[in-house]
Design a protein around this nucleic acid. Structure first.
Length: 327
DNA sequence: AAAATTTGACCTCC
DNA sequence: GGAGGTCAAATTTT
């Protein structure tokens, strides 16, 4: 489904407005920082518009999460979000009902996750806690990665067993900037957010590395709140989008059902292909690598003191809500 | 005591 | 065989 032109027009209009704003302050006393922000916003706005156009040409595939997350308002200068379509692999294994069956048929279990898409989010002040996405996660592993200075941590939804929620994410501090974290999401949250404790959720990936600040904010956040957080903390950079064109916009169409709640991306709704992920999850509960059909979203984010809301999973088909963040 | 994290072992893929 | 991902027992934290 193509994004309605109105969205594209809005982005372009915003770009124009921002440019005008910038023009008006160029000769003023405004700090160079403010100008920089405006410039970045202008660029981001146009980038998003371009993305939308490209997306529209991509044959009905959904746009990347980051596109939806792209803030339409000025954001804090120190934050940034960039989208990286980074097809890491292709996750098209056949769905199996159990591991045995899978072994019999293919002898392979797809342990290697297949991260298909990557969104880069980064903020400046490298404090932890900023990447809290509103979901409750349980760390289940850590691995040193070849060539990486810092180990990668693996998390799964706290409600994995209680609610068969197979959502996972991995976090890795980037080599270049220790204050920046790579956060990749995989799978969908099938847990019912409304049943989650309203207070205290562990969670930010980084919390494991630095356990001091601000953790425990109520979860899951209301969607409005999260959107607000996003807008306040992130800036979108649409770099690298074209590098991986073959896989760009490869999210299952349903992915945006979550996102639309934040940005009114209603045009994503009703995509024909999104309805069966859920079933697979339910049946294939036992193996860890079941999210063949799901797109992977990864973000690079450095934490800040302010919690950064981020939809961990764009494909939440939970019958309870579409946003995945309903209270 | 329960929940969460740590960490070495195990598994699968390349 | 190596790398990355996950499991699960041990340990730590709440």
């Amino acid at each position: 489904m193509d994004p309605p032109s109105v969205y594209i027009v809005n982005e372009l209009k915003q770009g124009v407005e921002l440019a005008m704003h910038l023009k008006s302050i160029l000769s003023s006393e405004s700090s160079s920082e403010t100008k920089q922000i405006l410039i970045q916003e202008i660029i981001s706005s146009y980038d998003r518009a371009i993305l939308m156009v490209n997306w529209g040409d991509s044959g009905g595939q959904t746009a990347p999460l980051a596109l939806a997350l792209a803030p339409s308002t000025l954001s804090q200068p120190e934050s940034s979000v960039s989208i990286n379509e980074t097809p890491r692999s292709h996750e098209f294994d056949q769905p199996f009902h159990n591991q045995q069956e899978e072994k019999v048929l293919t002898k392979k279990r797809k342990t290697m996750p297949t991260w298909q898409d990557q969104i880069r989010i980064s903020t400046d002040n490298g404090l932890e806690g900023n990447t809290d996405d509103g979901y409750s996660w349980r760390k289940y592993g850590q691995k040193t990665i070849l060539g990486a200075k810092f180990p990668r941590s693996y998390y799964r939804c706290t409600y994995r067993h209680a609610q068969n929620c197979m959502a996972r994410k991995q976090v890795q501090r980037t080599d270049e900037d220790p204050t920046v974290f790579d956060i990749s999401y995989k799978g969908q949250h099938t847990c019912n957010p409304t049943t989650k404790p309203s207070a205290q959720q562990p969670e930010s990936p980084e919390k494991h590395e630095i356990k001091h600040n601000n953790q425990q904010r109520p979860l899951p956040p209301k969607s409005g709140e999260m959107l607000s957080n996003l807008k306040e903390n992130l800036r979108v950079n649409t770099l690298d989008l074209d590098d991986t064109s073959p896989c760009a916009f490869s999210f299952p169409s349903a992915s945006f059902e979550t996102i639309e709640n934040y940005h009114d991306f209603n045009f994503l709704q009703g995509s024909p292909s999104g309805s069966n992920y859920f079933t697979e999850w339910g049946n294939d509960f036992q193996h860890y690598d079941d999210s063949n059909l799901s797109g992977m979203i990864s973000t690079t984010a450095s934490a800040t003191n302010s919690p950064l809301a981020f939809p961990a999973d764009p494909q939440d088909f939970s019958p309870f809500n579409n946003s995945g963040f309903l209270i």
